[in-house]
Design a protein around this nucleic acid. Structure first.
Length: 491
DNA sequence: TCCTCAGGGCCAGAG
DNA sequence: CTCTGGCCCTGAGGA
């Protein structure tokens, strides 16, 4: 089965209605050029620059690229170059044509994951940058991919590297921020890049290898919590001036921003960096009168769910396309990778949650439930999603539910249980007031929403249990945050 | 202390 | 003149 509309040289046209099919199609061989192999068995793709196909000379600004693209990227960022494309921003990019359109070349640099932040503002020579862990992990994963087929790799081997190397860099918080001050940062989860679904410039070409149709109103359905809330604020991002990942589709020019990346190291969406966070009173979260902007305060740390889904999809598509003919991920492996990357997103979200930062947690442990099957999980999850979709959640309700799931006083080893309960109560109150105000005719909405939470928790526990069983069988396809979490929780 | 390697600078060549 | 890209230097961090 071919990967729909995918060609490494052409942006992939994303059709939300085919999201599920896209994921399924990831299993089959892609239509991307067959990956040749070196005499020693290493995929040649490891030796070719993802931008132009030239020979790579090492890791540069976030990923393996050739010397030429390294220099081009460096000059572009250092000199704040402003390029324009005389064509349709879809110029082919290869060894012979890479010089023709610097606009498209720079686009592709960003799209494949080169990081402007890695170009040093102070121009200091030498040394190592903050992406060291990224390079190490990437290298490790590449090695593992080559020498150990994921599904054949022994369990202990996976655990060994899982425990020695935390998967950090590809999900660097800096790469996941919604940063309105960064006009041109495509950095995203694991080199994946998406068009902001709410930006609303239908005609604007998207310089990415995983494009979203501009009319994509609802998030894809394939992720557990996506598409649950109704977009009550179609222009939300625009109104707030937020352009996630810095992409401005309103212009065909790239304005390379200043190199003040150090000032942007704290995610702008982080409540700690916003004035409103100063109104927070960690000491008495429940006794403090509810600020009218409490819900907005919660929303400040929110990622767009559609973006998260699209990032995961783009990443998977890229990885699948880069795999050898006989090395393609099967459905379960794809699901595990989805879960892993979604987990990263959730962890990042939780870490950025001002409320969660107040917590002191030793180790997250869970209670196991046994005897689950994948089909029953899918069925239960689909039921839950259907119920939640029927509620047409708005962003405020959705973020409240997320916080209520996160702040679970039943989780062991939470040191300040009282604080968790207080926070839960506070969010509860905010949710109740919001539903009463925004849905006065639907007075029962608050209660109905709360009734869904036990099921959410129950399903999540079953999913964990199921994955752990597969994990013990050595089925989990890769070293990941997911396997690490499962191991930690069961150890 | 040495080695590795990624970012920066230099400069000849191309257009 | 600007841009490109290959080569070399630098120096933080790891062994």
């Amino acid at each position: 089965m071919d990967l729909p509309d995918y060609n490494p040289q052409q942006p992939l046209v994303y059709n939300p209605g085919r999201y599920r099919e896209d994921l399924l199609s990831l299993e089959g061989p892609s239509t991307s050029p067959e990956l040749k192999t070196e005499p020693d068995g290493r995929p040649e793709s490891e030796e070719s620059c993802p931008i132009c196909g030239d020979k790579v000379s090492g890791y540069h600004y976030g990923l393996l690229t050739c010397e030429s693209c390294k220099g081009f990227f460096k000059r572009s960022v250092q000199n704040n170059k402003l390029y324009t494309c005389v064509e349709h921003q879809k110029c082919p990019m290869n060894l012979s044509q890479r010089k023709r359109c610097p606009f498209c070349r720079f686009q592709k640099c960003l799209a494949v994951g080169m990081k402007r932040e890695a170009v040093r503002a102070d121009r200091m020579r030498g040394g190592r940058n903050k992406f060291g862990p990224l390079y190490r992990r990437d290298r490790q994963m590449k090695q593992q991919k080559v020498f150990h087929h994921p599904l054949n790799a022994p369990y202990w081997m996976k655990m060994e590297s899982t425990q020695t190397q935390r998967p950090t860099a590809p999900h660097d918080p800096h790469l996941m921020r919604n940063n309105p001050t960064a006009p041109l940062s495509f950095d995203a989860l694991h080199h994946s890049h998406v068009h902001p679904p709410a930006v609303g410039h239908p005609g604007a070409p998207v310089p990415l290898d995983c494009n979203l149709n501009a009319d994509r109103g609802l998030a894809p359905l394939s992720l557990p919590y996506s598409g649950l809330y109704h977009r009550s604020f179609p222009g939300y991002l625009q109104e707030k001036g937020e352009m996630p990942y810095g992409y401005s589709s309103a212009t065909t020019n790239y304005q390379i921003s200043d190199n003040s990346f150090t000032a942007r190291s704290t995610p702008a969406s982080s409540p700690c960096s916003t004035p409103s966070s100063s109104t927070r009173t960690p000491d008495a979260p429940s006794s403090a009168p509810l600020k009218p902007n409490f819900l907005d305060h919660l929303l400040e740390g929110e990622q767009d769910e559609g973006q998260l889904c699209a990032k995961v999809l783009a990443s998977l598509q890229r990885e699948q396309a880069n795999r050898g003919k006989h090395d393609r991920l099967n459905t379960f492996s794809i699901m595990c990778k989805m879960a892993d990357q979604t987990l990263f997103g959730l962890v990042e979200w939780a870490r950025n949650s001002a409320l969660f930062k107040e917590l002191k947690i030793e180790v997250m442990t869970i209670v196991s439930q046994a005897g689950v099957t994948l089909s029953s999980l899918v069925s239960r999850t689909q039921d839950l999603v259907s119920k939640l979709k029927a509620f047409q959640l708005d962003r405020h309700e959705f973020v409240c539910l997320k916080h209520l799931v996160l702040f679970n006083p039943d989780v062991k080893s939470v040191q300040s249980r009282a604080q968790v309960e207080q926070t839960q109560e506070r969010v509860n109150r905010a949710l109740m007031e919001h539903t009463q105000q925004s849905h006065p005719r639907h007075s029962d909405k608050f209660g109905q929403l709360l009734l869904r939470l036990p099921e959410v928790r129950s399903i999540s526990l079953q999913v964990e249990e199921y994955l752990y069983q597969r994990h013990l069988l050595g089925d989990l396809p890769c070293n990941s945050l997911l396997t690490e979490m499962l191991h930690t929780k069961h150890s």
